[in-house]
Simulated assay, not measured.
Amino acid sequence: MTDALRQAYDDQLREAGEIHDDADLTRIGPLWCVILGDGARGFVTYRDLQGHSGAALDGLIEQVVAHYRDATDVVSFEWKTRGHDAPADLTDRLVAHGFVPEERETVMVGEATGLAVEVPLPDGVVVRRAGVGGDLADDAARASELQERVFGRGSGPSTERLVADLQAHADRLTLWMAETSGRVVSAGRLSIVPGTQFAGLWGGATDSEWRGRGIYRALTAARARHALAHGVRYLHSDSTDMSKPILERNGLRPVTTTTPYIWTRPSS
């Protein structure tokens, strides 16, 4: 089962599944080098490295760094590694070329039906889609405040960017929240990936004093039901150690790990 889920993840969520319609793309060997919307950040995506190893892999990494350094204005770019990719020494070679690893997360994948369950909520807590039964901008602002309380400032998109994305991509991007007495106590996004059977669970956060009461599970169930209603079969998440056991209890399976390796332009 895990092998089949990993195969679906590799086939559908890499390369095209990670590239936005309006992305600025450059092909270097098996890699797509992407410049993200603000022009300051880049992203490297690929299905696999097509056998590059040793000196050939070093040369490929050098080409990518030279591209972003010399042909773009990006401040930094991410090379997103997966734990099951070959060769095994890729990460060592990235570090040798100046990349810095961020926190490793677990890639969780599973059938959406496994999460679309009824979950009882504490008295007074309501789960709803942002902008439905409330003002979208206000809902997004309060959800962003929660994210900052839980993960720290700058851990997610700005409220302005979030609202703009929700409005521009309402057919595939939704924000979900659990609130009580006007206070958002849990929130997370659902992003349907066009042209695939997948939707992603992103930005899940719950106030520390409200954890362990089924709220995050109910929030995830609401997103799963919405995904199923829009033809999605699989849900995926790059999960922290906090959210991984919750998703695993509801049928998602760890299929690999992922670690972002970040190259940052040297200060002049």
Rank of each mutant, 00 (worst) to 15 (best):
E78K: 13
R249E: 09
H97L: 14
I35Q: 14
I28C: 10
A187D: 00
A86M: 08
I262C: 08
T256E: 06
R223K: 12
E248C: 13
R93A: 14
I19D: 01
W32K: 11
A227T: 14
V64E: 01
R128M: 02
R211H: 08
E102L: 15
G188C: 06
L146T: 11
R189I: 03
D73M: 08
R217N: 05
G59N: 02
T257I: 14
R82S: 13
A55F: 04
I61S: 05
L94D: 03
R183M: 06
A16R: 13
E103K: 11
T206S: 10
L228G: 15
D85T: 12
R183D: 08
A222C: 13
G98V: 15
R104K: 09
T159R: 05
P101D: 05
G251R: 06
V125P: 07
R47Y: 12
S268N: 02
T106N: 07
L235E: 07
D165K: 01
V65W: 00
G124K: 07
A170G: 04
S239A: 15
Y234V: 06
F43P: 14
L247K: 03
I262R: 09
A116K: 12
L190H: 05
G98L: 14
S53E: 04
G83Q: 09
R217G: 10
E160Y: 00
V109I: 14
A221V: 10
V107G: 09
A178E: 02
I262L: 14
R223S: 14
I215G: 03
A224Y: 07
R149P: 13
Q12M: 04
T174Y: 00
N250P: 04
V255H: 02
H97Q: 15
L136R: 12
I262N: 05
Y216S: 10
A222M: 13
D171T: 04
S155I: 11
A227Q: 13
E102P: 15
A141G: 11
L115Y: 01
A71R: 10
V150E: 04
H52P: 09
L166I: 03
A71I: 00
A137E: 13
R93T: 14
R69M: 03
G203M: 05
A141W: 06
E78F: 13
R128D: 07
I28G: 11
T258L: 01
V95E: 12
A187W: 00
A218F: 06
Q63L: 09
H226V: 12
G182P: 00
L31K: 11
A227E: 13
T257H: 09
M1H: 05
A86R: 10
I61G: 07
P194R: 09
V185W: 00
G110D: 12
L235Y: 11
D22A: 14
I35T: 15
A130M: 13
A227Y: 10
A16V: 13
A130F: 10
A170C: 07
G59R: 03
G182K: 00
R183I: 14
D165A: 07
A229Q: 12
D21Q: 10
W210F: 10
T45D: 04
G131A: 07
G214N: 08
W176F: 07
G133E: 05
A16C: 09
W210L: 11
V65M: 03
T72L: 04
E105I: 05
A178H: 02
A227L: 13
K244N: 10
V75Q: 02
V65L: 03
